[in-house]
């Protein structure tokens, strides 16, 4: 499980790769929060899921946790490029109503 961030204009991009489950999530949770804290004041964060080969419901909890943190800074959250498996998990949990897919 890996996580990388980059800043472009007013957007923070967070790229997730690998397999996101209950075992691997701890590794990326802190790094995601540090990236968010370091970039507070931008208008939005885009989580790019293209590199995620697997995600179960742990991913839902992880994304909602980051959503709440971003909200504190007044930042919007978006998701892009989930694969079919992640898309199914995100769809049935209704997550796209909080963090739209772009």
């Amino acid at each position: 499980m890996n996580l990388q961030g980059s800043r472009r204009g007013d957007n923070l991009y967070i790229y997730l790769s690998g397999e996101l489950d209950e075992h691997s999530v701890a590794k990326v949770r802190e790094r995601a929060d540090k990236l968010i804290d370091d970039n507070a004041g931008l208008s939005r964060a885009v989580f790019n899921l293209a590199g995620l080969r697997f995600m179960d419901s742990t991913g839902i909890g992880f994304l909602i946790g980051r959503y709440k943190r971003l909200k504190k800074y007044g930042m919007d959250m978006y998701l892009e490029n989930p694969d079919a498996g992640a898309d199914k998990v995100l769809s049935i949990s209704g997550l796209y109503s909080l963090m739209p897919k772009i």
């Binding site: 995600m55 179960d56 419901s57 498996g85």
Partner: peptide, 16 residues
């Protein structure tokens, strides 16, 4: 691929 992903996700949930 969808069926395989469904099974993997369900097993991951149960084991977790």
């Amino acid at each position: 691929l969808t069926e395989l992903s469904d099974v993997k996700t369900a097993v991951s949930e149960a084991v977790t």
